[in-house]
Design a binder for these strands. Structure first.
Lengths: 331, 331
DNA sequence: CTGTTAGCGCTTTCAC
DNA sequence: GTGAAAGCGCTAACAG
């Protein structure tokens, strides 16, 4: 391993001068500078970021911690990466498998020290658990759970989005709209908010709210979504619309309906939530709610930098607007 | 920031004893141990991984460096994460946007020092550029490009997979099969290998190879794939099968064919490559080649650990078998 | 414009 | 079973 003092010796200067050349922190005379750069080149020197981190207390890296690498999160991560890189830092992605233990480990554990800041999309931790998180580095939370006041937080307009999607189904003529993947009862999960939006659309249209049309799905997986919808179809419950709480569920609904010989949008209209890229390309195209990844990413990174600059700034809670995107599944 | 010496002071021991308790490297007397753990708990101490890393030279973290966070790579990353975690390390994901500069920066730059090892899926760097990469940490390469002998490398059986998919289309009755997203000419890109497999299937079936049926696509994006296929349809070139070089292209083909009123699998059979999860759930289901993420991940992590244990082990080059998965698009 | 000194927080090594 | 000293490679702070 070639170190900075090897370079310094080769160039006949002190390590500080090498450091100053490489970091451009203080002006260095042109000839000295040349000698240093030549030595760096000929020795193949690379800074040791670990040592720099330890000494300087910054890493140039931001972590985005998500439940999984899939679907919504990969599209979000891409937007966050662009935003972080635009501000001159690197982004790394970690996944927690949505478990409270792993989220806790990611965020309160020692790993936080490795980053200048962390953006976490929390689904496993409840409000009380989050409240126990104290870290030496800024944390911005994403997602739809209730979070302690003191955290910076970015969320989506879930209710408004669900209401827009469901309202659109009703407007196109659906009268019996499933809330597939929504969650009944109280709570602050993303899927309760989206169910509330579904209800609001019904109220606004003067339609009854039938609790049999709320169909929860264990883990939002393709497999469970498919099984749940097939169960509904086979139960004989008549419906002519599906508001899917996520696009994964919506895409699966397209497949399950096709499998049972129901046409979309003829027999059943379908709308999802997340506006996954793939939904715009498969037949017949999935109407969805665009969650505005760019805006979420921009806000999250803005809040993170604000807090890096001023650890005592008051916490900000941002709700990002969403937008209906109409495609073949409702047209 | 509470440090190890704060804990040592509170427990009335030396920092070495604290370190030994936390790392379980040397036996520590039970009462001492208790005092140390109590102090850790009451002070809320967390190890500083940066400092440990600098001193001990290991980080407990493996990086997977991929061109993007999407589709094939997110599914691969999930498998790699499971495998890495099973061996007691963390995985972080970085993306390069497939640019040679960023791949170079990720892998030859100082960032490599932050990890115990790196698995990189390289698409931007050619053989010569890769050959210039020398790092202090193990690197395992994934992917279909030609790589220098000295690297450990895991690749897919691309030709065999493409041949199986195309052979299946032919067996089902297709006679004019597009190679959508494949690359003509020589070369060692993934899409040339897959085109060669497409050709082999034709030869095996005694069918002519018509170069007009090889339709390259700039960047494998949904948008370009859609545009390319619509162009072919509108050109009047008759075809009754599509072998798509990736599932992203295959899924898009389903949509574009639907848009032009062609039925799948009635008018045109479609097969892809990657076996993306979504392909099993949308209508009519996309026949595909399963790239065996688990096997790729297992081999990659095995090679990485082997090299961490023995930096001088001879390089291994592994080719992972793939498997045809038949769904509605060819049934 | 350049150098010296000190030390980030931890673990390796050696000593008892 | 426990401790003291040294130092990983770098940069902040101060000095000249």
């Amino acid at each position: 391993m070639v170190t900075m003092s090897d370079v310094a010796r080769a160039a006949g200067v002190s390590t500080m001068t090498v450091s100053n050349v490489l970091n451009e922190r203080r002006p260095v005379g042109a000839p000295t500078r040349e000698r240093v750069l030549a030595a760096v080149e000929s020795l193949g020197y690379q800074v040791n970021l670990t040592a720099r981190n330890l000494r300087a207390g910054r890493t140039g890296t931001v972590a985005l911690i998500v439940p999984s690498f899939f679907d919504y999160y990969s599209e979000l991560a891409d937007a966050v990466a662009r935003e972080v890189e635009a501000r001159g830092r690197h982004l790394v992605l970690e996944r927690t498998t949505a478990s409270a233990e792993q989220e806790m480990a990611s965020v309160s554990g020692a790993r936080l020290q490795l980053y200048d800041g962390v953006i976490m999309s929390s689904v496993g931790l409840d409000r009380d658990e989050l409240d126990r998180v104290r870290g030496p580095k800024p944390i911005v939370l994403l997602g739809e759970r209730d979070v302690p006041e003191r955290f910076d937080h970015v969320r989506l307009a879930n209710e408004a989005g669900a209401q827009a999607a469901t309202g659109h189904l009703i407007e196109r003529g659906s009268r019996r709209v499933l809330a597939l993947g929504a969650t009944p009862g109280d709570g602050h999960a993303m899927t309760t908010d989206r169910r509330v939006g579904w209800e609001q659309a019904h109220r606004e249209a003067g339609l009854d709210i039938d609790p049999r049309f709320v169909v929860p799905i264990g883990d939002y997986s393709f497999e469970n979504a498919r099984a749940a919808l097939l169960r509904v179809i086979d139960s004989g419950l008549a419906f002519d619309g599906v508001f899917a709480a996520t696009d994964v569920i919506g895409l699966t609904a397209l497949g399950a309906l096709h499998e049972r010989g129901l046409s979309v949008p003829g027999d059943v209209r379908v709308a999802g939530f997340d506006n996954l890229k793939v939904g715009g390309f498969i037949p017949p195209g999935l109407t969805s709610i665009d969650p505005g990844h760019e805006a979420v990413a921009r806000e999250a990174v803005r809040l993170l930098h604000r807090r890096m600059d001023d650890p005592d700034a008051p916490a900000e809670h941002v709700s990002v607007p969403v937008q209906l995107v109409v495609r073949g599944s409702t047209r």
